[in-house]
């Protein structure tokens, strides 16, 4: 008999109550149960960073957490950032600087960086590279991502 656990999770400001199997990964819960497919899964063992989300405001990898661990916690996914008409300054910067090509890794980069830039308003290039050291991008060679982060920091400073 399959054990089901009732969880209550707030995702992007909406509260969800669901019953889940304990072995359900948080990434799969977000994608399959909540149908929020902006969170991507790449390596599924915590290396590539594509599945990064905010968990109680901190960037974490959702593929190495169980959904049951999110009970009574708050999550933000890439869907919380902006809409096509009103992009987040970080998304604008990624677009303007061509910081994505296939785009698969982008949600993970954005969720890593939205947390990082919240605490670090004016990072150096070296600090930017350190901030993204847990995210793989196989297209861009990272140069344009670093440029985009620099631009995003300026945009975010102007917004605040």
């Amino acid at each position: 008999m399959t054990q089901l656990v009732k969880i209550n999770v707030t995702v992007n400001g909406v509260s969800y109550e669901r019953e889940v199997e304990p072995r359900l990964l948080l990434s799969d819960f977000i994608r399959h149960d909540l149908k929020l497919t902006g969170t991507h899964v790449g390596c599924e063992h915590g290396l590539c960073g594509a599945c990064t989300i905010l968990f109680d405001g901190e960037s974490v990898r959702s593929c190495i957490m169980f959904a049951v661990m999110a009970d009574r916690h708050t999550i933000e996914t890439v869907e919380s950032l902006g809409t096509p008409d009103h992009l987040h300054p970080l998304q604008e910067a990624f677009m303007e600087k061509h910081a994505l090509q296939c785009g698969f890794c982008t949600p993970g980069f954005l969720m890593t960086l939205v947390d990082y830039l919240g605490d670090n308003k004016n990072p150096t290039d070296e600090e930017i590279r350190e901030a993204i050291d847990g995210n793989f991008c196989r297209c861009t060679g990272y140069e344009n991502i670093v440029e985009a982060v620099r631009l995003a920091a300026k945009k975010m400073a102007a917004h605040s």
Binding site: V5, E21, P22, R23, L25, D28, E44, V68
Partner: peptide
């Protein structure tokens, strides 16, 4: 699902 089933305890 990826992990094999297990019983879950949350003390």
């Amino acid at each position: 699902m990826k992990p094999a089933p297990f019983e879950y305890y949350a003390p």
